[in-house]
Amino acid sequence: MAEVVLAVERLSRNFGGLAAVSGVSLECRMGEVHAVIGPNGAGKSTLINMLSGDLPPTSGTVRLRGRDVTGLTADRISRLGVGRSYQKTNVFLPFTVFENARIAAQSRLASSLRFFRPATALRAVNEAAERAIAAAGLEGREGATVASLSHGEQRQVEIAMTLATDPTLLLLDEPLAGMGAEESARIVALLQRLAADHAMLLVEHDMDAVFALADTLTVMVNGVVLESGTPERIRSSQAVQDAYLGGDEAHD
């Protein structure tokens, strides 16, 4: 079986008296797409924030390829091969598409404390940026300022930046949020291609995309795991039907 890239054990996060995430355990292997679904407020974003180092956990452990990374800062975790995209577009609006991907690719240099040669002369960095832009379907848009792009294109920039860091594990927080049908289909196809040589943890509300992509699903409700397993098992689970899938908010 493929290597376990991400192993999460009994991870919890409290905000004051509120347990936003409580005792969540899950695994994600190389080549696997693991989708985390659940209604709003289930703790999915809090979970992903702990995995990416944006938020320190209250308790529990996070292991990357066997290494304990619990509580490491976001920059350390990123450099260990974790690429994260954000639910709310989190890019460099005044910069061009190319510069957004380029600065992301530049993060893989051992150090950016280089002062005297132009950043744009780093050939390997430029190539990584171009590959990421092409993969995200933004070819031809390199010179455009990100602030001038449509919402869907900005989402693609978000993905291009994540890819430009050449991650092993992708943490994607609602990559399809706010995308049109055509853009969504393109991103789903991209994610399917990426799945082969990445481990992917996906939070997504678009159930068609989730069932098209995911090898494993974890359903969260109120900060705890309600059910975890293959898409078939989740589809047929009565508890999931009652709590989530059958409900009115299935496609919110």
């Binding site: 990416s52 800062t73 990123s78 890019v91 460099f92 600065i103 993060s107 950016s112 132009p118």
Partner: peptide, 24 residues
Amino acid sequence: ASPFGRVVQGIRVNEHRMKSLGFP
């Protein structure tokens, strides 16, 4: 215009994203 200069300008625009991209 150097790699360092670009990092500094990225920090002005969006420091949080620079951290999540792996920049200390």
